[in-house]
């Protein structure tokens, strides 16, 4: 109830309640579905510790409360614990998304002291399936170790899993593992194109038959989220064919670029050139102002669609995969049809 009230106020007033902050694009694994293009030379150097701290202070002033620190793999940054301590000092509700492979006992102890609200570890299934997907033998065991350490230090753990053709059969195993170990779990069936628009990884998406099972499985109800990696796990709160991106949620990449969401790659500005508040509250005629003005009526196809009421259209995917911010998202169409047809 309070949650909804806060979401509504911040949505209406464009207060960035939720920020997903990518701290690095570097990674120690080679996941086959990764949306970050390889050889990402695009954007110069990663933000420094001091730059990140300055941005966090600006986010606090702008009203951001929920902060997700993600990557790449954030533990490749030497300063990650320092950043966590700073986020705690600024009273953020902050979480880390990680593959867990670099989490040691020493790191866990310091994380526990840092006031972190939780850590979400990516899992894909049993050892052979997991290691095949990550491309690194031994990665499963390290992720399991990380879960055990985090639990031992009483840090809230969620295991999250991108559901694909290759790990679909393992999801019941993951649920059992999570339950036996007293940790939460979350599944996301959204394989997105790479950030540069490359669609080659879409072949990993679930088939209609598999999606149907996902929507029909009572163990998954309430534990499936959509476009979760990019929206920070909060995207489910939006309730129309637009979304919270650019209103009360925001994405920042490791080079200081600000986006409405890390799935909605409309570049709003760079934090090395401008303050967050200048970027988030720009003048009339800016891309962001325009985005915020769009209404359901502007969606000519979706507006007439009989599935619209149940659809979780992701504007980011509509733009990245289908090339039109105001058009249908082919993945959202597929999902809602499978979901609704199941009820018939």
């Amino acid at each position: 109830m309070i949650q909804e009230e806060l979401f509504e106020i911040t949505y209406k007033k464009n207060i960035p309640l939720i920020t997903v902050f990518e701290l690095t694009n570097r990674c120690n694994l080679k996941c086959r579905h990764c949306y970050l293009p390889k050889n990402d030379k695009c954007s110069g150097s990663e933000l420094t510790t001091e730059e990140i701290k300055r941005i966090l202070s600006q986010l606090k002033r702008a009203g951001c409360l929920h902060l997700v620190l993600t990557g790449g793999e954030v533990f490749l940054r030497d300063d990650i614990l320092d950043i966590c301590k700073y986020a705690h000092k600024l009273n953020f509700d902050f979480r880390i998304f990680s593959n867990g492979n670099l989490i040691t006992e020493k790191i866990t102890r310091q994380l526990a002291e840092s006031g972190i609200s939780g850590v979400e570890i990516s899992f894909y299934g049993r050892e052979s399936v997991h290691d095949k997907i990550t491309g690194v033998r031994g990665s499963f065991e390290k992720s399991i170790n990380a879960v055990n350490l985090l639990k031992r230090y009483k840090i809230k753990v969620t295991i999250k899993c991108l559901l694909m053709k290759s790990n679909f059969n393992d999801y019941p195993w993951l649920i059992r593992y999570a339950r036996n170990n007293g940790v939460s779990y979350r599944f996301d069936p959204t394989v997105a194109p790479k950030n540069n628009g490359d669609k080659s990884i879409l072949k990993h998406r679930l088939s209609n038959q598999q999606l149907k099972r996902v929507f029909g499985d009572k163990d998954l109800v309430g534990n499936v989220s959509f476009e979760d990696r990019k929206g920070g796990g909060f995207s489910d709160w939006s309730n129309d064919l637009f979304c919270s991106g650019g209103h009360n949620s925001c994405g920042i990449d490791p080079y200081g670029n600000v986006y409405p969401c890390l799935q909605l790659l409309i570049l709003l500005g760079n934090l090395r050139d401008k303050t967050f508040s200048k970027i988030w509250h720009p003048g009339n005629g800016s891309k962001l102002t325009q985005l915020r003005k769009f209404k359901q009526d502007d969606l000519q196809v979706c507006n007439k669609c009989t599935y619209a009421e149940n659809c979780r259209r992701c504007p980011g995917l509509a733009l990245l995969e289908d090339g039109n911010l105001l058009g249908p998202s082919s993945l959202s169409c597929k999902m809602v049809k499978v979901q609704c047809d199941k009820n018939h």
């Binding site: 007033k13 309640l17 009203g63 951001c64 409360l65 009273n91 809230k156």
Partner: peptide, 15 residues
Amino acid sequence: LPWRVIDDTVYIVNP
């Protein structure tokens, strides 16, 4: 605890 003042109201999270 994480907290913010948003629109004149204090919101506090218990993680």
